[in-house]
Design a protein around this nucleic acid. Structure first.
Lengths: 344, 344
DNA sequence: TTGTAAGCGTTATCAA
DNA sequence: TTGATAACGCTTACAA
């Protein structure tokens, strides 16, 4: 009994001797249709197992109620929390979420941007690929008044919504915490410089050192490309092999921070006594590793929810406005064993 | 300049004095159209910034090239790896992936099933909610010959594709490993009984004990509902408070296994000397915790890729067949410090 | 090789 | 309160 055709409003109309317009209206409880007819139609629809064809209605209405999400990779704790938050809000509003991965490649990002556009998504939420420098491929959304939200890895300039944290002050707070614990030679594993979130964290770190009159040495800062565990290992080994090695490190994500802990431990350093570590993101591993990894909270789930809400709110407006609106979320220093050298 | 209408094939046809059918065919390099015309059309399309309206073509062709994914929660390592695998294969084939979360609720699962159906997805990949016992809500897909793949948490019976591991033998292997390391009172944190993957692991565990003539005691087996860290803590505290406590534990996921390690350590037990632990899934935390968590590999990414491929392959067939096809993926015992009591 | 025209299922305008 | 009809943008059978 497969492959039988879908029941459409025509079938319902036929069965009840009504017109399709009446059926269509009755199905959405339009006020102009009598209670009796509305009831009759909905009953028939249920009995005949009618399911609305969203494609047809999307085509007709020129809107899909679908949010496109374009991120580097789904299987990172930050990203999956982000999507989860996006999806929860979308689901409640009856929106679908479609997912595309850039794998941190500029080319993939451009292609998937196009694919999302062709799918006529109602809105787009994007965290830029590591490689991405220009954002021309997003212009088409703005040109069509399709709301676009950049989240976390945002471009420096683009007339649109941005949902982010204050990376500068987060970097400052991270370094400051280490300084307050008495560390004096503080290294930094940073992301690529043109990616502003990493650059801002680095600036915050630099300014904290400056404020406390600690040396800012370029060889204590290592820029890595993907922030993988392996890159972290390599960077930390290099740092600890310096003639005058650091006594602490601020890593711009938890993965490389965990690598720092493991490498330092394997070299016989005691943590936090000999070597302090603070990461970024508050990934699940940060509370599992021994000692616990101090880190900066990064409210991914909340950022996802807000991003969805921005899209939904924009779609409710009838006016067609160009908007630059930045939402900053709060971050906290989460202190665990990896950096807690002083008793309170 | 926003809100300008999309360029359609009508616009291209007008501009070139051709019919829409010619344009449509030229855009897909149909063989019946002359090289010259094809070239001309594609050039004009590029110049006019034409973007195909996938909705319209989906409606017309009655297929969306979209795979719907219905899972409990995105932000679990297993699930995000799974989706990542699904998406990679889909993306290559020009398919979209739309995501829905059941949050392990039966009601949500039913609702999202309907939403996916209404979206006219070309295929569905689902890992059942913890609560789900009946699968009537999936009948509609089978009835319409829409390929359906159950992955990991599969129903016991349903004529469709299934992608899974051999949970019985995985459970057996896990218990066997502990036995071989000399543990003799082996407890088990199990998932809900009616969820077959957990029940099969439990059976494997039971049969391993039987084979090695170890006692099977019901009070050494605790069934938990969500397998959260907190549930794990509670269960392990209970087990270790028994008059005759276990000397090892096999947990049906890594989250509760990590809880077991932490609780045991906090109670002064040495791991693996006094207490052995093996988990399930090989989540990232398993290699970070100290000692490293022994576990069973669970090839999520690969399972995602295979699931996508099953969908794509089915869609290529013209025939309309009911299929029961089960793909079993291999699992390995991954031995780390939490259970390695004997020297090799 | 190209064109005509109908149709996918829905919704909105206008008329009754 | 209900109905007739056109339209959304694309594809395809059939005709030329």
């Amino acid at each position: 009994m497969s492959q039988n055709k879908d029941v459409t409003i025509y079938d319902i109309a036929d069965a009840l001797n009504l017109s399709t317009s009446t059926v269509s209206r009755a199905l959405k409880n339009h006020s102009s249709i009598s209670k009796k007819t509305t009831l009759k139609v909905n009953e028939a629809a249920a009995k005949m197992q009618y399911t609305p064809n969203i494609l047809a209605s999307s085509l007709r209405n020129n809107k899909t109620n679908t949010i496109g999400v374009l991120i580097s990779r789904i299987n990172r704790p930050f990203m999956s929390d982000l999507i989860s938050g996006i999806e929860v809000v979308a689901q409640k509003a009856g929106f679908n979420v479609i997912i595309a991965q850039s794998h941190d490649s500029y080319e993939d990002e451009v292609n998937m941007c196009q694919a999302l556009y062709n799918s006529r998504v109602s809105g787009v939420i994007c965290s830029l690929a590591m490689e991405t420098k220009d954002t021309d491929h997003f212009d088409q959304f703005r040109n069509k008044n399709i709301p676009l939200v950049f989240v976390d890895r945002v471009p420096k300039t683009f007339t649109t919504y941005r949902v982010m944290i204050d990376n500068y002050s987060a970097g400052f707070k991270a370094a400051q915490h280490l300084i307050e614990q008495g560390y004096t030679r503080i290294a930094h594993i940073a992301g690529l410089k043109f990616r502003s979130i990493y650059n801002e964290r680095e600036q915050g770190y630099r300014d904290a050192l400056k404020k406390y009159n600690l040396p800012e040495e370029d060889n204590l800062i290592i820029h890595v490309k993907t922030m993988s565990y392996e890159e972290g290992e390599k960077a930390v080994n290099k740092l600890l092999s310096l003639e005058n090695p650091p006594d602490a490190i601020f890593s711009s994500n938890d993965t490389t921070a965990v690598a720092a802990i493991q490498v330092a431990k394997s070299r016989g350093l005691r943590i936090p006594e000999d070597f302090g570590v603070i990461g970024f993101n508050n990934d699940p591993i940060s509370r599992i590793i021994d000692p616990g990894l101090s880190t900066i909270s990064h409210p991914a789930y909340e950022m996802g929810k807000i991003s969805s809400k921005k899209i939904l709110k924009h779609l409710k407006k009838s006016k067609n406005e160009s908007i630059t609106e930045i939402s900053f979320l709060n971050t906290d220093v989460i202190i665990r064993g990896s950096s807690k050298r002083l008793k309170d």
